[in-house]
Computed example of a mutant assay.
Amino acid sequence: MKRVKRSKQPDERKVNDPFTNLANDMIIEILMKLPPRSIARLRFGSEHVSSIILDKKFIQWYITRSSTQPRYLISLYRGGDMQMQHFQSLSQDHPYNQGMVSYKMDPELLYEFTPPVRGLICGRDFNKMIVGNPSTGQFVSLPRVKTRRQDILSVFGYDPVNDVYKVLCMTVVLKRSHMSRNGNAVPWEDIVSEEHQVITLGAKEKWRMIECKYPHRHNSGCKGIYKDGFMYYLATYQKKGSLMSFDLSSEEFNVTKLPEDQMLPQSGELVNHAGKITIAHQAYNRNVDLWVLEDANKEVWSNFFVVPPLSIDFFGRFRDLVFMGILGTGEMIFASRSSPPFFFVCFDPKSKKVRETAIHGIGRDSRHNIQIFFDHVETCMVLPKVC
């Protein structure tokens, strides 16, 4: 068998690479002005540029710059013959239609995405999960979650100490016992704990079972959020409503009791309000009730409500607005999905100022599943392949 001699000629990409004649500072200045998808393409055209793009310092610089220009992120799933997931990133100041990034889906899966963290997003369909960069269209599949349970909560976050992204998954565990009824032992199933699993985004990571010293159950339908190295979600602990937190660095849980307020519903939504974890709920009278965690150690909460503005449609009719979230500026987002175009109403509770934003091209179709995320920060990060 003949041995194939390797050519001693230098790599053609290196020889014909025009970027080697430019100073790194100039290359970085050029890259910082480009959108993530253009940067992703440049990575394959120049080995020298690729080394800069993959450098963690450059990725951090890009995220830092992007954080000063937060955006809306629209996730649009189109059904039908060809399953396709579309992502559109829009400026919050000038939300005109811009380039849409598409990702071809498994026709048997419908991913529900958690809020993006530092430019990345995580989607799950039962025990199948993906993590991706919606600005470049690169997605990687994670190993399947080890469970047969149906009730699963997944939260996506970033560990700033170890500079890694992690996913936390929790599944319900039933404990079979017996209870006495009329002198007879009756079989009984009680939800006493959950399986807690963590995976670190990387090439060789697998799901790891971790211990939680607070037996609890997450609220069904609750969506967790990430903030400053911690994940938060609503749960029931010792038969009381609680706010659970998970430290992504130490991988330890903590619990904070919710205020004993009869008006605080189990269906509240967690939001970041002025840098504080807040439970928001829109009541039947349209008002949005906000419970703000002022001090987690002392379990101190404050409560107030906001009366949303009324909006008028194209036919001059008043319409109620649905609470969607809170921007980093403190503005509250409301929307009406009754008819296209899709409306955002930004309302400042302090100044009472209202501004409307219309996003065209998003219709209400039974085959479409739309998710809207706020304060999205774009990144040019290239994801590692997960085994």
Rank of each mutant, 00 (worst) to 15 (best):
V15G: 01
N24P: 03
G361H: 04
S91T: 04
M179Y: 09
E269C: 10
G137H: 02
C387P: 08
P309R: 06
L109N: 06
D348W: 05
F315K: 09
N303T: 12
I121K: 00
N369C: 12
C122P: 01
S245N: 13
H94V: 14
K56S: 13
K14S: 14
I63W: 00
S220D: 07
Q282L: 10
F139S: 06
K57T: 13
S51N: 01
I210T: 02
A203H: 08
R6D: 07
Q92K: 09
K240N: 10
H218G: 12
P115C: 11
W61L: 15
H273P: 03
M32L: 15
K213R: 14
E108K: 10
L168M: 08
G80I: 10
G99D: 10
K240E: 12
R124M: 05
L321P: 00
A358T: 11
M263T: 11
L120M: 05
R367G: 13
R124E: 02
H48G: 04
K223T: 10
Q150G: 06
K352A: 08
G325Q: 07
P265V: 10
D163V: 12
F58W: 05
C346W: 04
G79W: 12
G183K: 02
A283V: 14
G275T: 07
T114P: 00
P215I: 07
M1G: 15
V307W: 00
P107E: 07
S339I: 15
C380W: 01
L142P: 04
S267C: 09
V4D: 10
V186W: 00
I312K: 10
N184R: 14
R43H: 02
T256A: 08
L327D: 05
P116H: 03
S242K: 08
S193M: 14
I30N: 03
N182Y: 10
I59P: 02
S220Q: 05
H368G: 05
M263W: 04
P134S: 07
Q197T: 04
C222D: 07
E195F: 08
E205Y: 07
F246Q: 03
S336Q: 06
G268D: 07
I121Q: 01
D320P: 05
V198D: 01
R37K: 14
I27M: 02
W188R: 10
I372C: 10
Q60P: 01
G363Y: 11
V140C: 07
I121M: 01
S245G: 12
P35N: 04
Q138E: 14
M32T: 08
G229F: 07
S177I: 08
F304Y: 15
G99N: 09
T147S: 13
R65D: 09
V167C: 03
L383T: 00
A203W: 02
K8E: 12
K206P: 04
M244C: 06
N219P: 00
E195R: 08
F374T: 09
I121L: 03
M82D: 11
K227F: 15
E29Q: 13
K385N: 13
S177C: 13
G316Q: 05
R43F: 00
D55K: 00
M231R: 02
K385V: 15
L258W: 03
